[in-house]
């Protein structure tokens, strides 16, 4: 079995609309953390949503393979149960269901049966501790009335409890102050290990000071134009995206 998430020559557009991805190639081996950087409108967030199965986009060409198996025909829930996770840039507010009950339903769906309550609360406790959070967040309705920072932190808590094999974090750093950013990074770093791969979608190098990636990809106009080590992020921070854009044109 190939232990990786592979994006193979992926072309995609909004259903009956604009083309966003123009042949994305990317391999995320299990056990690694990759970052995707790029200017606004490059297609980074779209890529994240497409991998997770957002039905508002359609794939026109290419494939997405998880551990060697194509997931294109699977709905979002099936992909999640196979071990995929997307931390949303804008998590949805859902009154009527508590955060903890929702997570328990999600975990049950993933395990395909009842979840032992002691085990479940153990996981919650551990996540809360890492994220320096108190229990009051569990009984509140899912994201309902949460601040921007609370929503982002909650996404990381969901990830820690659901323990995906591959996680995509869509601009989890945006709108966070430095303390919140450190806490979120702590959560992601706690997940790191041989059975976990992550794709961090971000605008800024800032997050990568706290979560040091194995590989950095730069995306422009719906394609990965260059990849490198953590030093690539530093270069982008210093020099901006213009040189990569030129690279994209010359390619």
């Amino acid at each position: 079995m190939v232990n990786q998430l592979e994006i193979r020559n992926l072309h995609a557009r909004i259903v009956d609309g604009e083309t966003i991805l123009n042949g994305v190639n990317l391999v995320l081996p299990k056990g690694q953390v990759h970052a995707i950087m790029g200017p606004n409108g490059a297609g980074k967030s779209t890529l994240g949503k497409i991998i997770a199965g957002d039905p508002s986009y359609e794939i026109t060409k290419g494939d997405i393979l998880m551990d060697g198996e194509s997931i294109l025909e699977m709905e979002a829930d099936e992909r999640a149960r196979k071990g995929l996770f997307l931390a949303f840039q804008y998590p949805v507010e859902v009154p009527g269901v508590s955060n903890a009950n929702f997570l328990r339903l999600a975990l049950q769906a993933k395990k395909g049966g009842e979840v032992n309550l002691t085990e479940f609360y153990g996981k919650l406790q551990k996540a809360l501790e890492t994220l320096e959070w108190d229990e009051s967040i569990l009984t509140r309705y899912l994201n309902d009335g949460f601040s921007g920072g609370e929503k982002k932190r909650n996404e990381i808590m969901h990830m820690m409890v659901l323990e995906p094999t591959y996680a995509i974090m869509d601009e989890t750093d945006s709108g966070l102050d430095i303390d919140a950013l450190k806490v979120v990074a702590k959560g992601v770093n706690a997940m790191r290990g041989p059975n976990f791969g992550a794709l961090l979608i971000t605008h800024y190098q800032r997050l990568l000071n706290y979560i040091v990636p194995d590989v950095v990809h730069v995306m422009i106009d719906g394609r990965i134009v260059t990849s490198g080590g953590p030093e690539l992020a530093m270069k982008l921070e210093e020099q901006g995206y213009d040189w990569v854009k030129e690279l994209a044109v010359s390619n």
């Binding site: 508002s56 829930d77 992909r79 999640a80 996770f85 998590p91 949805v92 769906a109």
Partner: peptide, 9 residues
């Protein structure tokens, strides 16, 4: 999509 992306049918 948000709810299904957490694994809920």
């Amino acid at each position: 999509f948000y709810l299904m992306s957490r694994g809920l049918p």
